[in-house]
Design a protein around this nucleic acid. Structure first.
Lengths: 334, 334
DNA sequence: TTGTACGCGTTATCAA
DNA sequence: TTGATAACGCGTACAA
């Protein structure tokens, strides 16, 4: 139904190749015929078939974006920026929700081998990575990892240094003079969460304050867990004077519990949260928190991948991005 | 580098067409040769080139998903479910973030004409739709609209009836005996918001309660606006006894203001919110709210589109999905 | 400047 | 059951 190069060629009375050259702005066509061709192309709304183009040029200009899920994670900023950069460079992004299922991840990686996409960005997810290694070993190495580490082989990677983020948060509280800083974290099996614990410890060490296991509360990350944490933590020998909470939902619960107990933030307890989600921003008082350069991470991922595709040379670098501390009311000394 | 049908054909010593038949499980191949071919295909990890397949079969098995943005809207559930259904049916989903830019939307629709995608789902966005009409008129009619209305031409559409949702909320309050129900909405230029106002009025009408303009507060939808609304609304001649709030952020602010004033929910004021976001679920007390069938809307969109593609017949239906009322603590009579 | 001819990898038709 | 051959729509090297 739609027009093809051939159709236009017939209408103008030239060869297909001439039409192709004219439309692609390549040299070797007289201004006259070019004009004529472009006019017809425009009039009839000609659109080159990308499939055929891809087949001929051996490229699809499509990227695969593998991620464990949309709702749960706070990936929207990363995704959005990947898409922006990709679009600017003329690439489309295919959404590949793995639901944290390794088999799905494997099957999505097939998109690479089926030549359906030019490259893939893998966002988070489990650590198992044999299939990634295999894919790459078979010669499909336009792969970039974000917030995920491949241990067996060197793959361009973008990491956000959550250990450093936790360090910043803890240091901030220490600088303000707090000494009994409670840590409320999510599941310690989670790599990211365990990194945050390390950052917390590093800061304590630096200030010569002994690590107190009783001040660390590992939870399932829910709001209720945050609430309960407060009740449990204030009931120990050395009650905390401040809190570092590693996620927004936990903070909601904690703040609620503190208020419910009749205490004030930061007068009675200082609180530092983690993450730049909408949730953190609606808690009252406005929380001091660690914010991650998610936008930048997304941009970078897309740029690195597109570079990889175009230069065909693997710049096997691990890029570590640093979070920042956003100081606000919950740690302000009044 | 990767294997092609031709390669396998040479290795086995048969024609390409035979290999193709064998691999696609089509009849016309002896069990013997089929086995041989499949073995080699597996051993060498053969993956058919989807580009070539698409070119030959005139289909890409890719859908375009146009949306105004990821972070802002509450679209993740819809998106996630579109992807799930699409994947099950063997389709991939391309993410097309229009950033509410009509030009971008237009250019993304080109994906259809470039034969790069088999169909498109358009999620929300502005109402201007001339380009959609044009695209469809040119014969590319595998288009489905979600939460967006095209007035000039009939296109398969999935709508969530927010007017009905608002009606439910208001009716619930009326049933509980409240008579001075304040309405806090977002911008009335927004189609959805204006629909909610209508639903509110319909319920009042039904219960013979006169519409009082002073009880309606139009805002910019921010948390601060929700907070201010309370301060303004309690200061009128006939102060409200309850609130219907059309968005989560507004509810956060409102609830905050109510508590700050020393009042209790629902003892002093009943509150009904709108939406099933994480935000609504972390407000304390747990809010009675209108929840929309977002998951279902996503599934339906994908199903309708894939049907459209396969049957090539436009089932020109407008599907209207009804929200439900989730009753909770903020309207409980204690 | 223009046209011819072939390749990209697959599917499908028609003979053999 | 097989194989040759022509599409699918475009890019490109080479020749004219």
């Amino acid at each position: 139904m739609p027009l093809t190069l051939k159709d236009i060629a017939e209408m103008v009375g030239v060869a297909e190749s001439t039409v192709s050259r004219a439309i692609n702005g390549k040299s070797g066509v007289s201004e006259e015929t070019r004009k004529e061709i472009l006019k017809i192309a425009r009039d009839y709304n000609f659109k080159p078939n990308k499939l055929a183009q891809g087949l001929a040029k051996q490229e699809t200009h499509i990227l695969a974006l593998l991620l464990p899920g949309l709702s749960e994670g706070n990936y929207s900023k990363i995704i959005e920026n990947i898409e922006i950069i990709a679009e600017k460079a003329g690439y489309q992004v295919i959404l590949c929700n793995t639901h944290n299922d390794l088999e799905k991840e494997k099957s999505y990686l097939n998109l690479l081998e089926e030549k359906r996409v030019d490259g893939a960005i893998i966002l988070g997810g489990e650590i198992a990575d044999q299939h990634i290694v295999n894919t790459k070993l078979r010669g499909y190495d336009n792969i970039v990892l974000v917030n995920r580490l491949c241990e067996e082989i060197l793959i361009p990677t973008i990491l956000i240094d959550s250990k450093y983020g936790a360090y910043l948060a803890t240091k901030h509280l220490l600088d303000l003079g707090y000494e009994n800083i409670a840590l409320i974290t999510g599941n310690s099996d989670d790599y990211i969460e365990s990194e945050k614990l390390k950052g917390y410890q590093t800061a304590l060490n630096e200030y010569g304050i002994e690590f107190n296991d009783n001040l660390v509360h590992e939870t399932n990350g829910s709001r209720q867990a945050g609430y309960n944490s407060f009740l449990n933590l204030v009931d120990v020998d050395t009650p905390p004077d401040s809190f570092f909470v590693t996620s927004d939902l936990l903070s909601v619960g904690l703040v609620e519990a503190i208020k419910m107990g009749g205490y004030f933030i930061p007068q009675d307890y200082a609180v530092v949260s983690y993450g730049d989600t909408i949730i953190n921003s609606i808690i009252s008082p406005d929380l001091t928190r660690v914010v991650e350069p998610l936008n930048y991470a997304g941009e970078m991922a897309a740029e690195v991948l597109i570079n990889l595709i175009n230069n065909d040379k693997a710049e096997e670098e691990i890029n570590v991005l640093k979070p920042k501390l956003l100081k606000s009311e919950s740690t302000k000394i009044i």
